[in-house]
């Protein structure tokens, strides 16, 4: 089953470019509004190209005009990515359409309508819901919608829009140094938590990860609060969801918000010095011990 149309909205051509391919599984006709587009969005039948915002303005400033366009064209499903700009645009557009922007874990067409699933209670639970009005505005992370083959008709229409005269001005854009991270593809992952007393001590985890051929992941506080690792590396309800063969949690307490990101791993091993740490309740093997003793010895033993 599919609906008549889906509209993908991108604040810049690089945001969530795969969404159009995924949308094909939901609707017969896939259209897109792409700010700053100079070509058709792969997978879309129609790409409405909106000029890039003038220097100092944000693409999110087009929200009111985009909402008007979506309404005028009878959009049934509106899809946006989960990056920071797309999320803001989603909320700004949804509110103007009189509805909530829904961050979905799953989306399908059943009967004559959409069914979405979302997490609730910090990741402990999942809901199934039917959007009540039209359009439904959905925030979709990569991987939620399987990509379809169809290329789309590839028509491009240029629509001129002026960003709202908002009292916002971008005065500087500093590039952020980043390393490519691909947690989703890793079969083994070492996850580090606040049990590490110092950023330099992460060396112990990096050496272990190298010995195991594993990727390094972390709990949210190490990425968001301490900034020791990039945000792409934290797993959990608000971070990445992974299902490796092995997840080795080191100095991670095992709170639900973290564990929902890894609880589909085949094997979970935990190293924690507190024998009552909740992580042991969710591990196949728990090692009660100080990571500063266990890690060097383990890396050594594995290297032998």
């Amino acid at each position: 089953m599919s609906l008549g149309n889906a509209w993908v909205v991108l604040p810049n051509p690089a945001a969530a470019a795969g969404l159009a391919r995924g949308a094909r599984g939901l609707a017969d006709e896939v259209n897109a509004v792409v700010v700053g587009a100079d070509a058709a969005l792969p997978g879309a039948d129609l790409t409405v190209a909106v000029p890039a915002p003038p220097v100092g303005a944000l693409a999110e400033g087009y929200a009111a005009s985009i909402a008007e366009l979506l309404q005028a064209r009878g959009a049934q499903i509106v899809l946006l990515g989960a990056d920071v700009s797309s999320r803001l645009l989603a909320g700004l557009v949804a509110a103007r359409l009189g509805t909530s922007a829904l961050t979905v874990q799953g989306v399908a067409v059943e009967g004559d309508g959409l069914v979405v699933s979302r997490t609730a209670y910090a990741g402990l639970a999942t809901t199934t819901e039917r959007p009540a009005g039209s359009p439904a505005v959905l925030v979709v992370a990569p991987g939620v919608l399987p990509a379809q083959e169809e290329a789309g008709a590839g028509r491009v229409e240029h629509v001129d829009m002026a960003p709202a005269p908002e009292p916002l001005r971008v005065v500087e854009v500093r590039p952020k140094a980043g390393e490519p991270v691909n947690l989703a593809a890793a079969t083994r992952v070492v996850g580090v938590g606040r049990g590490f007393a110092d950023e330099a001590d992460l060396r112990l985890a990096r050496e272990l990860a190298a010995a195991l051929g594993a990727e390094l992941a972390c709990s949210r506080p190490l990425a968001e609060g301490l900034g020791w690792l990039p945000t792409e590396r934290y797993v959990g309800v608000s971070g990445a969801t992974i299902r490796p063969d092995l997840y080795l949690a080191v100095g991670v307490s095992g709170q639900v918000q973290h564990m929902v990101g890894v609880n589909q791993a085949k094997v979970i091993v935990a190293i924690n010095k507190d024998k009552n740490a909740p992580v042991f309740g969710q591990a196949d093997l728990g090692v009660v011990g100080d990571l500063y003793d266990v890690l060097p010895a383990l890396t050594n033993a594995l290297a032998r």
């Binding site: 909530s100 809901t127 009540a132 609880n263 309740g281 196949d284 009660v288 011990g289 010895a297």
Partner: peptide, 29 residues
């Protein structure tokens, strides 16, 4: 509300072995 909720259920848990080892570092390693 923007949606009609049809269900709210706890996430299904994977069965785990729950073995715990404790003691001398060389031994647990």
């Amino acid at each position: 509300p923007s949606t009609d909720r049809t269900s709210l259920l706890a996430v299904e848990q994977v069965e785990r072995a729950h073995r715990v080892v404790d003691g001398d570092t060389a031994d647990v390693v």
